[in-house]
Structure formats: structure tokens, C-alpha cells
């Protein structure tokens, strides 16, 4: 465990001395802030329209904070598609390029601890990104009374969603010494996992159902609606496990290739 924490610590420190962390954090804060503002304005306008249209009769009740947070989280899911590859792209590719992998692979640290340390660092950094979004969400509590349940499940969903993509990104970063290449490949992979349900739209019947089920964004929708389904938990967790397993195997394969 100490080994894992040592690796996590070094990785986090190196995130924050390189520009990557600040660029990712800055762009993420800016984009998510702008979108939150836009969603807020849009939702309020929509509510006003509904109220104006209902004349004398009682207006249909609208869950304003719920509506805002759902849209906001949906947008975050998409922004993160672009940000997550940048968190993992250098994790192993840079070690290989700089030759520091030779230190890590000859230290009394198991490959499993190494993978856990790298993944832990990526997840910790991602948690910081998610933490930032608590600020706009908490303002909802100042002006309204949002339901806490769906917010909790939405964060759980976003966390698992991010963690599973980070695990895949970690694997991709073992495949090349070039971190830009790793970043682009990861982005491509994530994008593909995202749009499989679009392909599903063209197909029909069971094919469509299966492909929709495979899209990484589909379970996220359930989480945001406050639905906690075991199948969704299993989906993200098995995706993460797959990514970590492939990472582990890929490190073993390097040793043999040299």
C-alpha cells in the first residue's frame, strides 16, 4: 500500500508542476462554468414561458433545480470525453520515453502496485475536477431545494464513468512512447464507445438495443435521473477492470519485448 501511495503522490505532484494539469483544470472550469450559466438562463426562460402560457390555470409544476442539474451533468459527461484522455496520456508513455520505467520495473514494487498507483493518481486528479463542479451545484441550494438523491447518484455515475475511461486511457498510454499519440488514440476510443448507439440507430431490432446498451453515455443517463441500477454499476466497473487488466498485461508484454 505504501508503494501505491508513493507512486500516486509522485504522479500528482508531477501533474501540478507540468502545464497539463492547469490547462485541463482551467479549460474544464471555464467550459463547465459557461455551460452552467447558459443552462441556468435557458431553464429559467423555459419556466417563464410555461407559466405565461398557462394563463389563469395552475401551471404545471417544473422541477427547476432538477432540470438544471440534469442538463449540467449531461454536458459535463460530454466535456469530460475531451478532458479525460489528457489525464492519462502521459502516465506510461512518458515513463518509457524518459527511461524512468527502468527504475520502476527494477524497484521492489509489483506490477500490480505500479498499475494501482498510476490509476489512483489519475482518479484522484479526476476527483479534483469533479470537486470543482460542486461549486455551481451548491448555488442551487441557495435559491431552491433540489432533491439530494439524484445529485448523489449523478456524482457516483460521473465518477464511475470517468474512472472506467481513465482505466482505458491508462492502457492506451502503455502502447506508445508518444503521449500525444496516446491522447489521440484514447480520444478516438472514447468517441467510438460514445457513438456506438448512433450506429445502433441505423441498425434495428436487437442489434440496436445491444449497441445502445454498449454506449458509455447510456448508463450515465440513468444515474442522473436518480436511478441506481446494478447493471449500470457492473457496466462501468467491468469496463474499468478490463482497462486495468489490459494495462497490467501490456506492461508484462514490454518486459519480453524489451
Amino acid at each position: 500500500m505504501r508503494n501505491v501511495l508513493t507512486i500516486v503522490g509522485r504522479e500528482l505532484r508531477s501533474y501540478f508542476v507540468s502545464p497539463v494539469a492547469y490547462v485541463v483544470l482551467g479549460v474544464f472550469v471555464l467550459l463547465s462554468g459557461v455551460f452552467f450559466q447558459a443552462i441556468l438562463v435557458q431553464t429559467l426562460q423555459m419556466v417563464q414561458t410555461i407559466q405565461a402560457q398557462s394563463f389563469g390555470g395552475t401551471p404545471q409544476p417544473v422541477d427547476v433545480p432538477g432540470e438544471i442539474s440534469r442538463q449540467y451533468f449531461g454536458t459535463l459527461g460530454v466535456i469530460l470525453l475531451f478532458m479525460l484522455p489528457m489525464i492519462t496520456m502521459g502516465l506510461f508513455s512518458e515513463e518509457r520515453k524518459r527511461g524512468t520505467i527502468e527504475l520502476l520495473l527494477t524497484a521492489p514494487v509489483t506490477d500490480l502496485q505500479l498499475v494501482a498507483g498510476k490509476f489512483g493518481a489519475a482518479v484522484a486528479f479526476y476527483a479534483v475536477l469533479l470537486g470543482v463542479t460542486l461549486a455551481p451545484i451548491s448555488t442551487l441550494f441557495l435559491y431552491a431545494d433540489p432533491a439530494v438523491g439524484p445529485l448523489v447518484t449523478a456524482y457516483l455515475g460521473l465518477f464511475l464513468y470517468g474512472a472506467s475511461l481513465l482505466a482505458l486511457g491508462l492502457f492506451v498510454s502503455t502502447l506508445t512512447e508518444n503521449q500525444i499519440a496516446a491522447g489521440v488514440m484514447t480520444f478516438g476510443l472514447i468517441l467510438w464507445l460514445w457513438i456506438v448507439d448512433v450506429l445502433g440507430g441505423a441498425a434495428g431490432g436487437t442489434m440496436r438495443a445491444v449497441l445502445t446498451r454498449l454506449s458509455i453515455l447510456t448508463p450515465l443517463g440513468d444515474f442522473m435521473n436518480g436511478v441506481l441500477a446494478v447493471s449500470n454499476l457492473v457496466f462501468y466497473m467491468s469496463l474499468a477492470a478490463l482497462g486495468l487488466f489490459l494495462t497490467y498485461r501490456s506492461i508484462d508484454a514490454w518486459r519480453w519485448k524489451g
Binding site: 509522485r10 505532484r13 508531477s14 508542476v17 507540468s18 524518459r98 527511461g99 524512468t100 520505467i101 527502468e102 527504475l103 527494477t106
Partner: peptide, 13 residues
């Protein structure tokens, strides 16, 4: 203790 051919250093540290 191992000193590889290229010292395995983290440049930013």
C-alpha cells in the same frame, strides 16, 4: 541498486 545506461530521472523534480 541499479544505474541504467540512461539515468532514470524525472526531469521536473
Amino acid at each position: 541498486g541499479y544505474l541504467p545506461e540512461h539515468p532514470p530521472l524525472y526531469a521536473e523534480m
